[in-house]
Design a protein around this nucleic acid. Structure first.
Lengths: 157, 157
DNA sequence: GCAATATATCTCATCGCTAAGACATCTGCC
DNA sequence: GGCAGATGTCTTAGCGATGAGATATATTGC
C-alpha cells in the first residue's frame, strides 16, 4: 500500500485494502480445506460433487446439469469430475428413463460412506478457520458478505 | 442450508454460511476484475506481474523469486508468466550482475504504459464492486478480514 | 581450496478447467 | 406428423497452474 501511495499518489488505492485481503483470505482458506480433503483422498472438486449429491437427500440422485449449476463450472468440468468419481466407484451414471438426453448421477454405498466420513472433518476445519472471530463479529461478517453478494447480483444473498 | 439441516441434523453447519459466501464472493469479484483486465489485453496473472513491478518503484526491477513470493505461486508459474510477458515486449529478463544464478526482470516502456493505463480502470472496478457498502461497514470488513488473516498466520494481517 | 549444501531459475509431465462444438433427444408450432 | 430450435451431455484443444526434478551458481565449513 505504501509502495502504491509513493508510486501513484494520484490514485485512490483504498479498495485494494478490501479486495486484496478478500482474495488472500479466500486462497488461504482454500488451502486449509484442501488438506482436510486430501486426508480423505479427495480434492475440492470431488468433495463438492459428493456433498451436493448427499445434501440433495433421498434418492441421492441428480443430473449433470444440476451438479454443474451448483458447482458453477462448465459442463465439460462436470463430465470429467464424474469420470473420475465413476472410475473410483463413488458414483454411478445411468440413463434417465424420463429424458433420453439426460443421465442420473447417484451416490454408491462407497460414495455415501466417504462423504459421511469426510463431512464432519470438513466442518471442523471450517470451524477452526473461523475460530479467530467471536459470534457477533461472525454474524456481522455474514451480513456484510450477504450485502456484497446481493449488490453483485447473486441471489444467494 | 435447509437441505443439510434435513440430511445431517447432527452436524453444526453454521461455518458454511461464512465460508460458502466468502468463496462465492471471491469468485464473483475475480470474474468482474477479469473483464477489466481483458479490456486491456491482460489476464489476472499478467496484470499481477506488471503491477508488482510497477509498485516496486524505480528502477522497476525485481527477481523472479520476488515476483513468485508476491504472487504466491510456484517458480514454474512465474517462469511461464515471464515467458509470455517477455514475448509481448512488456518486460525484459537480463542476467543479474550481482548473482549469476539470478535474473533481473524489468518493465519496458510498453509495459509501463500498459500498467499505467490499466491501473485506474482496475481501481474503478474494485470501487464499483464495493459500492454496496458504506464507509463504516467497509472499515469493519477490512478489520474482520485482517483478524482472520492474522489468526491463519498471514502477516499481511 | 574443496566438498557439501543451499539457492535461483528453468523444464517438463500432468492436472483440472474453459470454450467451442458435436451429437442425440426433446418440445412446440405449423 | 414433421421440422426447427432448444436442451443435455460429451469431446477436444488449449491454457495456466502445480510438483518433481534438472542445471547452474553461491555459500559454508573443514
Amino acid at each position: 500500500m505504501q509502495q502504491w501511495a509513493a508510486e501513484r499518489p494520484d490514485l485512490d488505492i483504498s479498495p485494494m485494502e478490501v479486495i486484496g485481503r478478500l482474495k488472500r483470505l479466500s486462497r488461504l482458506v482454500e488451502a486449509e480445506l484442501k488438506r482436510t480433503f486430501a486426508a480423505h483422498d479427495l480434492d475440492a472438486a470431488s468433495f463438492d460433487v459428493l456433498a451436493t449429491l448427499k445434501r440433495s437427500g433421498p434418492p441421492y440422485r441428480l443430473t449433470p446439469t444440476a451438479l454443474m449449476q451448483s458447482a458453477m463450472v462448465t459442463s465439460g468440468a462436470i463430465t470429467q469430475r464424474l469420470d473420475r468419481l465413476e472410475a473410483r466407484g463413488l458414483v454411478t451414471r445411468t440413463l434417465s428413463d424420463a429424458d433420453g438426453r439426460s443421465r442420473d448421477v447417484a451416490l454408491t454405498p462407497e460414495g455415501h460412506a466417504l462423504i459421511d466420513r469426510a463431512l464432519p472433518d470438513h466442518l471442523a476445519t471450517e470451524q477452526r478457520v473461523l475460530s479467530g472471530l467471536d459470534a457477533p463479529r461472525t454474524e456481522a461478517l455474514v451480513d456484510t458478505l450477504r450485502t456484497l453478494l446481493t449488490s453483485l447480483g447473486d441471489d444467494l444473498g
